[in-house]
Design a protein around this nucleic acid. Structure first.
Length: 200
DNA sequence: TACTAGATCGGCT
DNA sequence: GCCGATCTAGTAG
């Protein structure tokens, strides 16, 4: 389950194709001390320069240039003064597409995740959900930050492997969260009835 | 349970 | 200055 890393060809497709296929896959972050992993349960697709809500909309900037690389790299950005959010860059070089990972179900390195999130009440089952049910939260829990911006997902620090097979009827779609432009596009995907999703 | 506001900072205008 | 692909604590009901 942890061994079959996704290949470059998986990522070199449009974000709208890649996003639902990431559900059920395993996001892994390896550090010398810990190996973090979690099942991806919620994502949002961001298209390139056509999508007003995308960071790529205004063209290449120093802050978003990673988005314009070819599919298969990690794009991490900092927002609201204190949060990191992580994306998987998809498509061909120059397209500026990415998939935002919004929530994970923790499976590996959970004790370290609790420490990172300062949720150390091991008896409290609800805290398990709070580790990764939001883009800022999962980055904090898994120790993902600016230093991972631009990392290749084909290497061994941050990568994604095969995981659960999610049936099409168990994939829900909705509009994206937390944006003010192109609000109507139904480009959020999440696993039906999964308690680790950030919002119904 | 539901809503509101504050934290906090990098990048754009 | 202002605003953001957010989170949390606080207050009210």
């Amino acid at each position: 389950m942890f061994t079959k890393k996704l290949k470059a060809s998986f990522y070199k497709r449009p974000s709208i194709i890649v996003a639902p296929r990431l559900l059920g896959k395993i996001l892994v972050h390896k550090t010398p001390e810990e190996s973090y992993s979690g099942i991806i349960v919620e994502v949002e697709a961001y298209a390139g320069t056509d999508d007003e809500a995308s960071h790529a909309f205004k063209g290449v900037r120093e802050s978003n240039k990673v988005m314009f690389e070819q599919g298969g790299v990690f794009y991490v950005y900092f927002t609201y003064g204190s949060h990191f959010c992580c994306n998987v860059v998809t498509g061909k070089a120059g397209s500026g597409e990415a998939v935002l990972i919004r929530a994970v179900e923790p499976i590996g390195g959970i004790n370290s995740m609790r420490v990172n999130r300062k949720l150390t009440d091991v008896e409290n089952k609800k805290e398990l959900i709070l580790l990764g049910n939001g883009p800022g939260k999962l980055c904090q829990a898994m120790g993902i930050s600016k230093q991972h911006n631009g990392n290749s997902l084909l290497e061994d620090t941050v990568f994604i492997t095969e995981g659960l097979r999610i049936k099409p009827e168990n994939i829900c779609t909705s509009t994206r969260i937390g944006i003010s432009r192109s609000v109507e596009l139904p480009w959020r995907f999440y696993i039906k009835n999964n308690p680790y999703v950030s919002k119904i």
